[in-house]
Amino acid sequence: MPDLAIVLPSVLNGLTTGALYALVALGLTLIYGVLHIINFAHGALLMLALYGVYFLNTVLGVDPYVALFIVPPVMFAIGYTLQRLVITKASHGRDENILLVTLGLAIIIENLALMGFRSDTRIIDTPYSFEVFEILGTFIPQPKVYAFIGAVVTAGLFWLVINKTDLGRAIRALAKEPKGARLVGINTNHVFAMSFGLGVACLGVAACLLLPTYYVSPHVGQGFVLVAFTIVVLGGMGSFVGALLGGLIIGVVEALGGLFLGESLGQIGIFVIFIVVLIFRPTGLLGHKV
């Protein structure tokens, strides 16, 4: 039985960790909600973004938070191109092909990274890596607080883009009625690619906020994929607020599960919640389509 005094710090920490998960899940929920595809390459793309942040920092001395203005746009371009040139072409209108092609892309990207960057675990050293804020008698590392803010802001921005812009309207139309959207003159290939690009750009944001407290290696992304899918489904796919909320819940469940069931067995909490939500409320907590 754990000391009850650490329950509060543990919950606070779970919230900040959950915000990081939410960042990874935000991109996924857009891709999943609009394109209805399970993107196996999501983790590999996160890894790519993390290397971007790493090399900007170690080679050019760019602070990871400054890299927020560089990495997400580059990731957007990568995502847009991949969707336009590879994924759409390979799908031939069949889900299983998209599954395979994203799986193929994940294998290619991860092993290219292994070839190019070798398998070393890399970390960056920032002046604030070990700095903390003291909140309610708990030490919260500064980078995690920034990540928390970043997740909330990103979710808000996504919400704005989807609900208040022409692009957003096109994306929503496409998600609901692909055939109808085509009829009213929406360039579906472009909008699909924009959605995928935005989703991948979000990974760029996640990478900038994650690296100050984490590491990068060629397989680092896989550790986040499963948890991100859980969050997407928990929050309701296509829902940004849901993804944020789902991330926070998963963060707290993971923390409390670890505390009460042990760190290894405690992971089970995430999946049990996932299964229960899927069975009893398959549309997720905030389940409505984009």
Binding site: P9, S10, N13, T17, F224, E254, G258, E263
Partner: peptide, 8 residues
């Protein structure tokens, strides 16, 4: 992914 819990 996170060791804070263990360290707590």
């Amino acid at each position: 992914r996170d060791f804070t819990n263990i360290v707590l």
